[in-house]
Amino acid sequence: MSENTQLLVFGLLALLVLALFAGIALLSEKPVETFVFYVFAGAMVLSSAAIVFSKNIVRSATWLLGTLGSAAGLFLLLSANYLAAIQLIVYAGGILILIVFGVMLTAKNPFLGFAARPRELLIAGVVGVVLFAGLVSVMFAGPWPQVPNATPSSEVAPVHAIGTALLTTYLVPFEIVSVLLLAVMIGAAYLARPEKR
């Protein structure tokens, strides 16, 4: 298949999916929000699947960017602007590190792929199935409280509330995490210091 046909097929598929989302959205009460939700959720599912199935570590990391970006989009849709921004800021750096490690681990051949052994596939499959079963059971067992018209006001500064909560209600966990991070930082500095000559 030539490249142009391939692109055409991709484009048509994307249009079809978008039309499907639009159709579903038009049936719901809030069409715009539903449509955007399906777009972000679809992108998230697609890129999550692509992380698992792509054989190249840097490509996996790139798809991870798509997943986390879609999560940020979903946060935005829920009017959680602060969470969305923090999601991008924190994970952007994180994925960058992942890419660097991926590049360094595959330094001999930058396009080296993964090859899983059968035993590893088995273990990973079992863990995946157990986790999935747990998630599904929680999804059906747990209560899903619904608050009608609970739109968080965008006027109240969430940063202020979160900062106050971190330094009053959740002070102990916050401090424990900071001590942990400090220990990690000291460890990294120790490992990275120059050799004594």
Binding site: T62, L65, A72, N81, Y82, A84, A85, I86, L88, I89, A92, G93, I95, L96, S154, E155, V156, A157, P158, V159
Partner: peptide
Amino acid sequence: INVGVLYLLATGSLSVY
């Protein structure tokens, strides 16, 4: 948006990709 500067930081940090 209520997190304006953070938004700029977030989009700015994406550009390195």
